[in-house]
Amino acid sequence: MAINWFKYAAPINFYPLAGKLIPWFAILSALLCATGLYLGFVVAPADATQGEFYRIIFIHVPSSILSMFLYMIMAAYAAMGLIFNTRLSSMMATAIAPTGALFTFIALWTGALWGKPMWGAWWVWDARLTSELILLFLYLGFISLHASIDDPRRADRAAALLAIVGSVNVPIIYFSVKWWNTLHQGSTIKFTGTSMQITMQQAMFTMLAACWLYAMAIALTRVRSIILERERNTQWVAELAEVKQ
């Protein structure tokens, strides 16, 4: 069965579809999260060198992976909105940004929590943590630029251009921070990927899936609100059951 994707590029068709998908994503995410946390915090054995502290990676690693991944997705949506002038893609970009920023913040927070017992300091200028911090700045820049422009069309387009410039810059920034880090012989977080046990890997991937589904559920919820806000003057919004009440 061929799905007509273009049909769902229109807010009027996407709005009910998103409404149907959100509960599935949300429930799956909650189930996976519970499983992942159980696997990670109860089933998985303590690490030989790091003891119990290492367990924070079950939250830290998925959120830092998602923080970077979501930025790329956001930039891709924004670019699509700018190039093909599709309103829904710009709305998706706006909807993803706060979730991306949240995951970046969680990654920083858990990184600091993990750093204290490992290095005895809340913050070390590790290359990955520093890049994550800069990524947070990039997210905040995107969100505040979008928020300070009143005309939604100009806001979408200006923020899209910024996101594209940012995504071109991310590899350069990451490389330069890594280079800076090696020059100053800073500490580097090394997760012993090869020696990781099967249960640890399972817990990690379950948590990654849970976070990913959570991000989708939240982004779709947010995009539904944005659609309602932007299309409030149209006939179909006025006829929605939830609006009529």
Binding site: I134, L145, N169, I172
Partner: peptide, 15 residues
């Protein structure tokens, strides 16, 4: 706002 947008992009040059 300008500083917020531009400063992160200038980090490689600084480094």
């Amino acid at each position: 706002l300008l500083s917020l947008l531009v400063l992160p992009l200038c980090i490689p040059v600084l480094i």
